Simulated scan of single mutants.
Amino acid sequence: MTARTLQQYCRHFLVGSALAGAALASFSASAKVDTINHIQKTGELRLCFEAGYIPFEMTAKDGRYVGFDIDLAKHLARSLGVKFVPVNTAWDGIVPALKTGKCDFIAGMTVTPKRNLNVLFADAYIKMGQTVLISPKLKDKIHSYRDLNDPKYTIATQMGTTGAQGAKKYLYKAKVDLFDTSADAVLQVMNHKADAFVYDLPYNAMYAAQHKGKVIHLDQPFTYEPMGWAIRRGDQDFLNLLNNYMKQVRGDGTYDRIYHKWFKTDAWVSQVQ
């Protein structure tokens, strides 16, 4: 081997070693995702959500966070023997909050392929879809979401949600106005600034029940949307824990009891803001 060949060999070896080292460092970084270990060390289970998503995550009149997702997460925390810590987070910053370790998992997130590029989803714990609330003035004109696909109609929904995606995909001819929160968006219909509001079925059903005569609910979903807990990518141990927990509560009646409380009765409505 000549001196020049030896130099080339060394150079290739060093470059290859550097690349291998970078790959190993990347692998090691992903391997460090260990939520279970963090939960055991801190004695806390932290859930990210955006309050105001009826009936999943809401703020009670006394300041507590309540709802279907809250009850499930609280029960999970008790099952693990740790403290439940709610982390109310604006929706547009909820995935960054998860990635930077401000919480352990996200509730109330619809599973989509695009979102799956950034987070890992546990098995879906509830399935639903988008429906429409319309202004009463359109009662005799609008009988289906398809009737709203017209330039003369204005659709309100929350930005960054599957409601926004559904409106843009299926009501592309209409004007779609996006708002920071679902509460701001649905008020556009109440204040006669929009003709319809597109959002998740449970939210719309409860809103229509609370505002009879002010909105009309077209309650046939026009999308299929499974919802699941979102966690950091690479966290397979925590994924296994969440999936096994859900199997347990579905089998022992806990899930049905919590579901009935929030979706089959309205006894809780007077408690929330």
Rank of each mutant, 00 (worst) to 15 (best):
T35F: 06
D177Y: 10
M109E: 04
F222G: 02
C48K: 03
F56D: 13
K261Q: 04
L171F: 05
K61D: 11
F56R: 10
Y145Q: 05
G163P: 01
G67M: 00
D252Y: 06
K152Y: 08
V111A: 11
L218Q: 14
G43R: 03
I36A: 14
G67H: 05
A174F: 11
T161G: 02
A183K: 14
Y125P: 00
L19W: 13
R146G: 08
A60K: 04
S135A: 14
L24D: 03
V119M: 07
M58H: 04
V111Q: 11
A267T: 02
T265N: 02
K175N: 07
G43C: 07
L117T: 07
Y9I: 13
F222Q: 03
K61P: 01
F197T: 05
M227W: 08
K193H: 15
V111G: 06
S26C: 10
D62S: 13
Y207Q: 07
D180H: 10
T181K: 01
S79W: 02
G16V: 05
F49L: 12
A209F: 08
V15L: 14
S17K: 04
F49H: 15
Y207E: 01
L201C: 02
M58K: 04
D195W: 10
P151L: 10
T154I: 15
R115K: 06
G63R: 08
C10R: 14
L241V: 15
A267P: 00
D147F: 09
I134P: 01
A208D: 01
L171N: 00
A60W: 04
N116L: 10
A31W: 13
Q165E: 09
E50F: 08
K137W: 08
A174Q: 04
F84G: 00
M109D: 05
M1P: 00
Y53G: 02
A97F: 12
F56I: 05
P226W: 03
R232A: 12
I231K: 01
M109Y: 14
G101M: 02
D177L: 13
W229G: 07
R78L: 11
P221R: 15
G213F: 10
L19P: 00
D71M: 06
L24I: 12
L138Y: 12
S135T: 09
G108R: 03
N88I: 04
M128E: 12
L14G: 02
A230H: 06
G43I: 05
M109C: 03
Q248F: 06
